[in-house]
Every structure is written in C-alpha cells, then in structure tokens.
Design a protein around this nucleic acid. Structure first.
Lengths: 192, 192
DNA sequence: GTCTATACAATGATAGAC
DNA sequence: GTCTATCATTGTATAGAC
C-alpha cells in the first residue's frame, strides 16, 4: 500500500493527529501510528527522526522562507524593513489548508510537555536562523538578536490569531499587524 | 553510602559531567552515572525526571529569582526599571562557584541536540515567567513579551561572557551592560 | 523517609531479506 | 524503499530493605 501512495509523511501526520486526539500523545505508540498509516514502525523512523517530529514537519520550510526573504531584501534597506521582509517570508510559507491542521495541534501541544519542548526548540531554531541573517547584514550581534526575537514573536502571535479566527483570513497582514504593535510597544518604552 | 552524603544531586551532576566529557552524552548510560555517584539507577530517576535534567538542576531558582525581583520592584516603576530588576534577579541567583560548572557545560551542550532542546525549553520557561509577571504589572501582552525577550537575551549574553572570561568577574554588571547595549541597539532602530 | 531490586512497556537503532 | 527481527536504553511502576 505504501508504494502506491507517495504521501507517506502526510499519512503519518494525519494518523498521528487522529490517534493523539483519541488516546492522548503518550498513550499512543509509534506502532499504532505506523499501522494506521499503512506502514511499519521501521518506515516511520526512517521518515522521521522521532515520534514528535511527525507533528513538526514543515518547520524547515519556515527557516528557508525567512532567510530567503531576508536575502531578497534590497541592499542598504533599513533594519525594520528587513525585519518586515523576514516575517513576511515566514507567513508566506503557510497555505490556508494548514490552518485546520494548526487548529488540531493547539490542544495537543497544550497536553504534552514533550511536545512543548520540541516546539520551543523549533521556535529557537527559527530565531537563530533569522538572527544569523540579520547579523550578516548589519554586523551587530545584539541588534540581530533582539530583532529576531521581535520578528519571531510577531509571527507566532499572528499565527495564533490566524488559527483562532473562525474566518479564513490571510496570515500575512495579521503578522504585519502584530509586528507593528510590538514595535509600537517598544517605541513607547524606549523613545517615549 | 548515600545516606551519609546528603548531596546526591550534586554527586550525580559531577558524575554526569565527568562521564559525558569522557564518553559523550549519548554513549553514557544512566546506569553508569548512577554507579559513579554511588547510587542506583532507580534513585537517579527518583531525583531527576530524566537524564537531561541532571545537568539543568537549578533552573527553577532562576525563575524564582526573576519573578521575586519583579515583585519587589516599587509600584509604579517604569517598564525599563522593572526589566532591570528582573535581569538582576536572574544574575543574582548565580554564585561564583557555578562559573566552573558552566564552563564545563558549554562544550557538552554544543555536542548534543538533545541537550540543546532542553536548554531552549528552559530558556523559554524563564521568558514565559518574566512575561507573565510583566503582563500582570503593565497589562500589555505585547510589551510584556518583547521586554521578556530582551531581558532573557541580555541575561544569557551576560552569562556567556561571565563563563568565557578567564577572570572571576561579578555577573550582575555584565548582564546590566548587555541589557544597556541591547536597548541601545533597539533605540537606534526605532527611535533614531 | 531515603534508597534499592526487579520487572516492564516503549523508543529508537541496526542488520539483513525482498 | 519497505519489511522482519532483534537489541540496548530510557523511564515507569511496584515491591521491599535500611
């Protein structure tokens, strides 16, 4: 069966989400996930490095989206403009079909410290990648770091409201709005 | 033997650091760590929830240090002053004896993704705790979030230079210096 | 109240057959 | 590329010993 359906990773994702919702994350074994996806446990671990990673596929695309967007920003662009490009690159990775999956993931994450830990690691990886690119541009480690934090925080906040909304709003303006409000809050403290 | 030496957690920490340095993190089993500490595997897992946690004991004190410092800040104090109190609370948790342990931990963390993941989780927990306290004070989720990020980043940067320095400098001014430089970088972008 | 002995389920790695 | 099979190790649970 696996040979005929090329989307083994997608099947494993759907099987995992279903089973985790039915039984909980810890109570679900990798054998059960593989079986429901029509595969064996060995194949699951060839496609994913561990059980948590099934739910986090696609995070690599976020890093690529952000770093490429920064690269595309015009030479000499000011820092806030490059940061806007970075969060736009993050937002543009998502398609509206991913919204439903994201909604299913929220209660799962809340239920499992193990998943929260992986989520923190992924968020950190995105922040580090953006920090690295900003450092290459502006040659200021601290500026790169704080801007990366603000950008990642704005992206996650915009993503959260995208998921939470009953309507299928576009993600990008939500993230831009968050970035504007976060920078406004900072301006008020440091320049006001 | 264990009954006579009350510092079982400390012995396990030292045994773990030694063995990880000798053999690597993954190649070292929990049985080996327990044996070198003069305990059994059962006791290790009674004292620590998992293998990684041996190296991260004391992180709870960081959260307590930060949140209590924020609570002690005078009512009506401006946001930047409360943030300074928070990072001071983080820095003041450390004693100069911890510097040597921190130095040993750096190459270990670099060698193991599993440890980096736990480190990211701990950092995130500290940031969330500070964010929570700042939100209670200023009733602004976004302000609380970005300030918490800046504070945590400044603390980690100051800690890194504390560890890196051959001299036994006091940590608190290093962290204060980092906070000043991070906020200066932001001011330059958003207010300059 | 802290430590230990033992058995156990599950993860993740590995080697080899189709 | 997938499967069967086996394996060491982690982490849990339960019992009892000092």
């Amino acid at each position: 069966m696996a040979r005929w359906d090329p989307d083994a990773r997608g099947r494993l994702l759907r099987a995992a989400i279903e089973l985790f919702a039915e039984q909980g994350y810890e109570a679900t074994t990798t054998a059960q996930i593989a079986e429901r996806a029509g595969l064996t446990r060995t194949t699951l671990f060839r496609l994913f490095s561990d059980k948590r990673e099934i739910l986090f596929q696609g995070q690599g695309a976020l890093i690529a989206g952000a770093t490429e967007a920064i690269h595309r920003a015009p030479a000499g662009a000011p820092a806030d403009e490059v940061l806007t490009a970075a969060v736009t690159g993050l937002a543009d990775v998502h398609t509206s079909e991913q919204r439903e999956t994201g909604q299913l993931l929220v209660p799962l994450m809340a239920s499992s410290p193990e998943l929260q830990e992986r989520a923190a690691f992924k968020r950190d990886a995105i922040a580090r990648a953006i920090e690295h690119e900003l450092f290459e541009r502006f040659d200021d480690r601290r500026l790169a770091g704080v801007l990366a934090d603000i950008g990642v925080r704005s992206y996650y906040a915009g993503y959260a409201s995208w998921i939470a909304s009953p309507d299928d709003l576009p993600l990008t303006p939500l993230v831009h709005q968050e970035l504007a409000e976060h920078t406004a809050a900072l301006r008020h403290v440091f320049a006001g």
